[in-house]
Design a protein around this nucleic acid. Sequence first.
DNA 1: CATGAATGAGTGTTCATTCAT
DNA 2: AATGAATGAACACTCATTCAT
Lengths: 206, 206, 206, 206
Amino acid sequence: MKQNASKPLLRRRKPTQARAQITVDAMLDAAVKLLKRGGASSITTNRIAATAGVSIGSVYQYFPNKHALFAALHERHIRQVDAILRKRTAECAESSLEELVQAWIEGMAEAHAKDPELAELLQSEVPHRAAGTAEFSIRLHTCFRAALAPHAGSFRRKTDLDTRTFITANMVEALGHALVSRRPRGLSLTRAKAESSKAILAYLAS
Amino acid sequence: MKQNASKPLLRRRKPTQARAQITVDAMLDAAVKLLKRGGASSITTNRIAATAGVSIGSVYQYFPNKHALFAALHERHIRQVDAILRKRTAECAESSLEELVQAWIEGMAEAHAKDPELAELLQSEVPHRAAGTAEFSIRLHTCFRAALAPHAGSFRRKTDLDTRTFITANMVEALGHALVSRRPRGLSLTRAKAESSKAILAYLAS
Amino acid sequence: MKQNASKPLLRRRKPTQARAQITVDAMLDAAVKLLKRGGASSITTNRIAATAGVSIGSVYQYFPNKHALFAALHERHIRQVDAILRKRTAECAESSLEELVQAWIEGMAEAHAKDPELAELLQSEVPHRAAGTAEFSIRLHTCFRAALAPHAGSFRRKTDLDTRTFITANMVEALGHALVSRRPRGLSLTRAKAESSKAILAYLAS
Amino acid sequence: MKQNASKPLLRRRKPTQARAQITVDAMLDAAVKLLKRGGASSITTNRIAATAGVSIGSVYQYFPNKHALFAALHERHIRQVDAILRKRTAECAESSLEELVQAWIEGMAEAHAKDPELAELLQSEVPHRAAGTAEFSIRLHTCFRAALAPHAGSFRRKTDLDTRTFITANMVEALGHALVSRRPRGLSLTRAKAESSKAILAYLAS
DNA sequence: CATGAATGAGTGTTCATTCAT
DNA sequence: AATGAATGAACACTCATTCAT
């Protein structure tokens, strides 16, 4: 369904791999810079080129159109969050449920820590039709589900695992996001993380 | 000679205001229609006018610029959600904590039921700088907090009320949203609502 | 050639004469106000109406279009200058050539004194195609010529009177204008007037 | 990668600048054409582009906005007049006062000869806020003053040189302008020039 | 007569995209 | 490959003008 479902498409920039990736990253970074400066409406292809120190022609060498650039922007961010969460999950293969949930919350916090406003801006300003969001959701759901499975015995109610995962994943995402960027003053990051973990654990234990 | 020198003008204002509201609503509805059809980028002032069946000049009689129109779009939606949630909350003044939480989830479901994709699109595509979002958040937090206060005695841990409210409000919003628009097939709306309520109650009881 | 060459047209606003003239003046004054504030481009019919405290409909009761309003603006100003110059000239029927020329320069200074920038702005910003400018020029030329005629004997060279008048009128206008609005600091108005008169007299004596 | 890192780019700039001047001139010429056809109000950026045979985008590559284009229009004209007058003045460094004054009048006539209505239209229709008009006036005043200085001994009255220059410059401009575009039929250009020169000389001799 | 909401052609300007070099 | 001048469709917005009340 997506445009990278098959190998041929991946070849698009194979040859000059390294240089290409640097250029692409420069352009995406430029887009982020512009996004932060003036919102989504100030991201124009010409400005991206200028900010990235590249000609406008080069932008179109790597992206067929502006939309693809936006999609790449989302994808890069999603890939980061995805990587962090999967790594944390993998590290907790043998851990207790409590440690697992804490790792997730910690992972969300880590993912947003280095650039708290980026996620917000990306979410709220940059159109993400057809970015890999859906695909990412499914992958993460699968990952979460697998991590939760070994602990299913400790859940009091006999809810099916998909439902548990659905609720849990949404809580992780929502609380992970909120505690970084909407946390009221007076509530420390540490306490917010602890409280979020407790909320999720309380649900899972129920 | 001045435009407010005589009564007739004031009397004429009333019907005008009613008509004005109809016109304004027609324009906002047109914007929503366009938003659903082709995303935020397909909302243009001229298209709004055409779709709403008014002249472009009339759009600018009611909104100083496109931004103000976007803000009004958000505001109208926010006001609806706000009204529903406050009403539900008010109705549960004497109820149990369980009924209160269920009412909130029910309210979120109701708010999104008639137009599930609108909230999503509004959130993710329409820039909402300086819309009354922040103000709304505070009002809702206050409302939630007041509703939670009478039940504070039943919470096992002695977490402060603002933290409780913060976590709870985010759960209500996230789960309320998710259960309407991201719920996996295989999970009925009824069960999703029940599960969401249980999650929140588990947290509050903890 | 002009639209007030015959009597019927003068009837346009006869009945309510007094009130009409007040309204028309209010509108022209509003236009002048706007002109001074923001240049010709800030004169819009709606703004004129608002500034004059009149409805936009009323503006179109008195002027068929914006152009006519501009023409009226020029005409009113021209009429003032014309009146002053004719009066001064008439007063010098028995006077010496020197007194006559001084009266003209004095008249120009007087005409621009109360609103020095208006003439400049009118000239340089407000389009005056088909305003009564040409007609005014002819009338003034005739007036000047008649006033100069009795002194023709004192001119050294035997240049024809029309040429004399042409040069003289242009000098009066140019110097009269320049001494009010472009005079360099260091040159007093009195000396500028004296010097201008001397220049014209030197020419006429030649 | 940056746009000024290598010499080739500088070499390419040269031909570009020549082409650019041609394009700019085409656009200014188009503006003049439109101005003559339908007055200042018929000059629109899109029409300029169409008339000049370039795209509207190109207009904005050379001018940041319409105002800058108007300013350039004035500047080009002013530069022409300035150049002519300075050249004529320079040629008369050793000449008599009479020759100098005749050269000025001749210069004004020359400047307006090839396009008599342009100066008039530029002056009366095209807004010239912040065009280099003032600067030009000063330069010309300085030029005139220097040219007049050697002849100051022949002036009968002991008026200071700045005042002399002020009056003279205004006469040159006004008469030079009038003799080209407002001269009454019956007065030949040759005689108008002669008479204008005599007027200025009579003043200077006085 | 006066009003002012409504109109919509038209304006200045932007910006995604192309393509000759 | 990389460049960036050129393009022109499309945009947000203005304003002279009309006309029902």
